[in-house]
Design a protein around this nucleic acid. Structure first.
Length: 613
DNA sequence: AAAAAAG
């Protein structure tokens, strides 16, 4: 029966195995046309591994040895038979999950094991290795929700019906219990609600939107794909992010979560050859992770259609909707063939969410829940923030002093990683060169480098091979780099939100971090916001900075009324007096965001909704 | 003014 889109997707893929065959086998409607089954079509992937080796004694439940699940497996093949009997198939005890009657067979026999086949498994999984998560750091987190009928949070993964295969992957990731944003966001999404979520950097947002998507796709009705054109693919979920490296990272994470669920995740971004990405797409895609430019390209080539999208997730959503990106995002979301709000489920995530961006974002949402999870303070107080007054001309030698001190401190074992942010691409190259000739191995990542160079730089940094990375804002958001001990704002950004994201590259997953900023007259416009932010995060604010702040306190665009926290306030609450649009961050409101202390509407216990209703 | 994102 050629009813499933998967069959449609399968044919072009088979065709790609034999380039000469063109689209003929699709046209014939012959389901078993491919004679060289290099590729296992989705409808065949889920055959119970009848003759496979039985599960060894090693249960795999918590291979707590080492930091990596399956680290002992040299190759991916080794790991898979063991798991097959436990995950996708045998586990079908849960209601509905094992039911393959729909012809929507899931699971794969050829899927590479994303847990066991990575060269740098420790680095790759390290941060998400939640044995290392310091959950105590997440106690007493203030939560605010608003919107109608907010589904209550959960306390454990077990009480969420995510499906056996996904549960198993959660165990493999060593996620012991959900982080606060996951506790709240996952039930909201599973209930089918649209969501705008603010949560601190490093608090597990990726999983928060991936789990409901994967679960929903597994649970969902099989789709009949319109045979629009054989080379067009119809993803069910779209995840957009502002940088290529972040898309890669989300893809890697999502692959782990969807391992042996039969849900296929594909990534597409610019700067890399498009042909491999096209081949990946042709093999079938449920979740497409992409950067906007490349996606538009694919859409215009009609290689991707958004017609079947059920889930849309924007990571770093405020960034995606700011001036540079907004037209592209609108084009993708509103002017292609994506179902409208209400006909799809939309999830927006970021650590920061300025009010006027919330307003733009609300165009994409339908009856959404606003969720803010985080401490009172836009940055986690796991990060020690320092500001030093440094003239432009002294910055280099000052950085050198810091690096020397750090080296002297001799972090045992692996060298601590230092991420240095600068303002410009040229400045990045210049600083890298200077560091290099002064004996500090450094590399750099910015938009003037080739994609290969960018990826190489990031790998080299992550592995500790080059423990200093000089970066522009391309690296400011979302990147999850374990062991970043120190973020240096060599040049401060002009926007306080960028500062929040930059320093959020450290202090992740409940670990501590240090952030040092070089401040001088050029940064006067940031003084107020910076001082406020630091104060909220219980950081020591230098007296000279407070003086700068007082001097420039006539509400520049960086000034957040009411102590902006991390943008964690639903603009709808104040929108009636915000229509004028003259405000930024709701400037001039009287309410002042969260109350100075304990002003949260609730969210601590189940069933709590908010005063917004 | 800068950075990012298609080629």
């Amino acid at each position: 029966m050629r009813t499933s889109w998967a069959d449609l997707a399968a044919s072009p893929a088979a065709e790609s195995a034999g380039p000469g065959s063109s689209a003929s086998n699709v046209g014939t409607g012959n389901p078993s046309a491919p004679t060289r089954p290099v590729y296992v079509p989705p409808h065949l992937r889920n055959r119970p591994p009848s003759a496979e080796a039985p599960a060894p004694a090693n249960s795999g439940r918590t291979s707590a040895s080492g930091s990596v699940a399956g680290a002992g497996n040299v190759g991916s093949r080794l790991a898979m038979p063991r798991n097959d009997t436990r995950l996708g198939y045998g586990g079908g005890s849960r209601t509905g999950w094992g039911n393959r009657g729909s012809g929507w067979d899931r699971g794969k026999e050829r899927e590479a094991n994303p847990f066991g086949d990575e060269d740098n498994a420790e680095e790759a999984i390290g941060e998400q290795d939640n044995t290392g998560i310091n959950f105590d750091a997440y106690e007493d987190i203030p939560v605010e929700t608003s919107g109608g009928n907010v589904p209550p949070p959960v306390n454990t993964f077990a009480e969420i019906e995510l499906g056996e295969a996904l549960d198993q992957n959660i165990r493999r990731c060593k996620y012991v219990k959900p982080t606060p944003v996951q506790r709240h966001a996952i039930p909201i999404s599973l209930a089918g609600r649209d969501l705008m979520a603010c949560a601190q950097t490093g608090s597990g947002k990726t999983a928060a939107f991936c789990f409901p998507i994967i679960s929903g796709i597994m649970r969902g009705q099989p789709v009949q794909r319109p045979p629009r054109g054989v080379r067009t693919v119809y993803p069910l979920a779209l995840v957009l992010s502002p940088t290529r490296e972040l898309s890669m990272q989300i893809h890697e994470e999502a692959r782990k979560f969807s391992y042996q669920t039969g849900v296929r995740v594909v990534v597409a971004y610019g700067g890399a050859p498009i042909n491999q990405q096209l081949r990946d797409l042709e093999r079938g895609v449920d979740i497409l992770v992409a950067t906007p430019g490349r996606l538009v390209d694919l859409l215009e080539r009609a290689r991707v259609s958004l017609q079947m999208i059920r889930y849309l997730a924007l990571d770093e959503a405020d960034r995606m909707l700011d001036m540079g990106f907004e037209p592209q995002i609108r084009k993708i979301v509103e002017q292609m063939d994506m179902p409208p709000p209400g006909a799809r489920q939309t999830m927006l995530f970021s650590a920061t969410f300025p009010k006027e961006i919330q307003r733009l974002a609300s165009d994409f949402l339908s009856n959404y829940v606003f969720l803010a999870v985080g401490r009172v303070g836009s940055s986690t107080d796991l990060i020690v923030q320092r500001v030093e007054f440094v003239q432009e001309s002294d910055k280099r030698s000052h950085l050198m002093d810091l690096l020397h001190a750090q080296r002297a401190n001799g972090v045992q074992g692996k060298q601590a990683l230092t991420l240095v942010f600068v303002e410009t691409k040229k400045g990045a190259d210049a600083l890298e060169h200077w560091l290099f000739i002064n004996g500090f191995p450094a590399t750099t990542i910015h938009g003037d480098r080739t994609q290969q160079e960018r990826e190489m730089a990031l790998r080299s940094f992550k592995s500790g091979n080059t423990p200093i990375l000089v970066a522009t804002d391309v690296a400011a958001r979302g990147l999850d780099i374990p062991h970043v001990a120190h973020v240096v704002n060599f040049d401060l950004p002009n926007d306080i939100d960028d500062y929040v994201h930059r320093i959020g590259r450290t202090g992740r997953a409940g670990k501590k971090g240090l952030a040092t900023a070089f401040f001088n007259e050029n940064n006067a416009s940031l003084a107020r916001a910076l001082a406020d932010l630091m104060q909220e995060a219980n950081q020591e604010v230098p007296a000279w900075l407070s003086r700068y702040a007082a001097r420039s306190s006539f509400g520049g665009r960086n000034r957040r009324s009411g102590g902006g926290r991390f943008g964690g306030r639903d603009f709808r609450r104040e929108s009636f007096n915000n229509r004028g649009g003259s405000d930024y961050y709701g400037g001039g409101n009287s309410g002042g965001g969260y109350g100075a202390s304990g002003g949260y509407a609730g969210g601590y216990g189940p069933g709590v909704t908010s005063a917004w209703d």
